[in-house]
Design a protein around this nucleic acid. Sequence first.
DNA 1: GTATTATATAAGCACTCACTTATATAATCA
DNA 2: TGATTATATAAGTGAGTGCTTATATAATAC
Lengths: 115, 115
Amino acid sequence: MTTLPMIDLDQGSKLLKLMGDKTRLTIVSLLMSDECCVCELVEILKMSQPSISQHVAKLKSFNIVTERRQGQWIFYRVNKDSEVFPLVESIVKHLPDQKERIQTLEIKGLRVCCN
Amino acid sequence: MTTLPMIDLDQGSKLLKLMGDKTRLTIVSLLMSDECCVCELVEILKMSQPSISQHVAKLKSFNIVTERRQGQWIFYRVNKDSEVFPLVESIVKHLPDQKERIQTLEIKGLRVCCN
DNA sequence: GTATTATATAAGCACTCACTTATATAATCA
DNA sequence: TGATTATATAAGTGAGTGCTTATATAATAC
């Protein structure tokens, strides 16, 4: 058994505040299943592109997610190397899996190609 | 192995928003160690009584904490019967133990009697 | 009864937040 | 080259948040 990496109350509360928004919490849950680009998140969450971009930027600023550029697209995923990842992971464990919503996107032919 | 009780994204984000305040997160961590009354939390956190009362009221409104009246005092503790307790517990696990701060209060003779 | 102690609650205010619209940047394609 | 697509960013706005001060409620002590 390894000891759990501790996060101080200041950092912890800031992380929880970031995750304490339904849109961002959904994004994190989605990205826990698979990486997505902004336009995919726009399609899934039915929200404006700037709004999604701003949410993702906040998650990125706290190192919760990382990006990977591929052509025009920037794919985001949960940063498993982050110090806060263990906490993020143990939160998402209590939330319903979002894999289905990505699969639905795939079935509709809206995956990767971004429409 | 038992299945984890799931919390939907709406409830989950609301819970995290509540925990995403440093004062409230500290209170929850403290109450995870032991029950406290408002005046004890005032002493530990060095904040005004109305401010602490308002924070505790928010935690109570989401069923994160419960109260137990004893004379003039109302003792608060984490509600282990709450549906969200498993999530609360797994968050606090990642945060530093706050038992010491209660013990310090005890040593200073400021425990229970509320000054 | 009145005074004291503990707590809750109400109103006001500065600040923050999540959205909007508009625009800028960047990569691809014709 | 210019047009299109994907994303970021800036400015503005209305709603929400956390504190303050002031007051109300409730239990105890005298």
